[in-house]
Write a protein that binds this DNA or RNA. Structure first.
Lengths: 230, 230
DNA sequence: GTATAAGTGTGATATAAATTACATCTTTGC
DNA sequence: GCAAAGATGTAATTTATATCACACTTATAC
């Protein structure tokens, strides 16, 4: 065996699911796996295009979006290191990307052939179980956000989004938000102007502090209240 | 072996996933499986309660709801024959019901012990793969709805909901909607009065016809247009 | 380094939809 | 069969937020 033959085996960025695989399975995974680097703004894949791969984020941040009405995009979420994208494509009937993915910074991913991944799942129930567990953990994250958005008014939705970024995406405070106000607007389903106004309100009442793209949440309690009460 | 020992084996309502299980696995499933009948309006399980079971709908319709702000409920969807409820509870960290479930008519379900189900998944990758496939098929159904709701105005959201009921829930036209206008409102995140007004509009422009709980979609094209354009 | 584009802040106005209020109409229990 | 509760229809008013309009500020290109 040559150097490089242990790519997946030696990988420092294994997901929890892949961590339980033995050497044989890792070699199988590796066969259908190819690594690629993307720069800020580059498209990983495009909604509607034929999808033959599951995409694993080794490192970085990726914006997921869907085309809405009148050309307006809807931002679904921001995924980060350790996430699997396009994993719902394991469903037999689906053969194309459900959303588009764009790198928000230097991002490193693995393209894993759908067939390799499927074979692994079918032959290794423990792996499949880990994958199922991952799927739910990941989805619940923004399912909650979508559900709340149905009932909430704008300030509540924006509070929700900011807390989502702080707690689930960047997990630090302050954090550098790689979305502009238009994108924030299309994440919570409003207009750019309204986002600007509500950010100003939050700033004026000392709940947050902003500088360029950096957001600093000063009063998380208040923000939680706004998130819950509207 | 006595009569009744083949409950799961002989079951006429097997899911696609369970259909691929062999006799041994079916006996294992059966050990953790108990059947229960619910009448209209009865609670299958309550949001927040400890969840030890996956619930399979053998037959009937079930309304899934979550508590929102100010006591107002949010209706998530209507599930029917063949659906697994609480399946996201397979995720390790979750130990309680994420939503409440209420029977909308005479409904027959199986309560399957989480542990039995987990064991099956772990020991049978092919089964796990089928379950994953099911999960996505089911979730995409209303994920789409939630995503669209972020951008859409009321008529669009109601059109969306009606088409969802016709195509994915009742799969017939006319259909008997087992939700009242208040419930419809909390499905699309609006007020009861607005639902009443928009239904009237749809009726007046000959798009639908209603009588008691029965909805008859006359002009599906128009409804699709409204769903897409707002 | 200037020009062009992209992003942001903020006011005035228009509009969709919530709220309030009440009149039916329908079901359910006794 | 009647009262009480639940569901629906419809109007008037209020409120949140979209849209329009424009100033200003910051990146990006040539």
């Amino acid at each position: 065996m040559e150097i490089g033959d242990f790519k997946c085996f030696d990988c420092k960025f294994k997901s929890d699911a892949v961590s339980i695989l033995n050497e044989t399975d890792l070699l199988k995974l590796q066969e259908g796996c190819s690594q690629t680097a993307f720069r800020k703004g580059e498209l990983l894949f495009k909604e509607g295009a034929p999808a033959k791969h599951i995409v694993y984020i080794r490192n970085g941040f990726v914006k997921l979006s869907k085309q809405g009405i009148g050309g307006k995009d809807i931002i679904l979420s921001v995924s980060k290191t350790g996430a699997y994208l396009n994993i719902h494509n394991l469903q037999r009937k689906r053969n194309d990307y459900y959303f588009s993915a764009v790198a928000l910074c230097e991002t490193n991913v693995c393209f894993i052939e759908k067939e390799s991944f499927e074979k692994l799942l079918k032959n290794n129930g423990a792996f499949a179980y880990e994958v199922i567990s991952y799927i739910f953990e990941d989805e619940m994250n923004y399912f909650d956000r979508l559900v709340n958005n149905v009932q909430q008014q704008l300030p509540g939705r924006l509070a929700n989004a900011l807390l989502y970024f702080k707690n689930h995406v960047y997990t630090e405070n302050p954090f550098n938000l790689s979305l502009n106000q238009s994108e924030l607007a299309s994440l919570i389903g409003t207009s750019r102007e309204s986002v600007s106004r509500i950010i100003k309100e939050f700033r004026d009442s000392g709940i947050i502090q902003t500088e360029e793209n950096q957001f600093y949440i000063l009063d998380e309690m208040r923000l939680e209240e706004i998130k819950l009460k509207g």
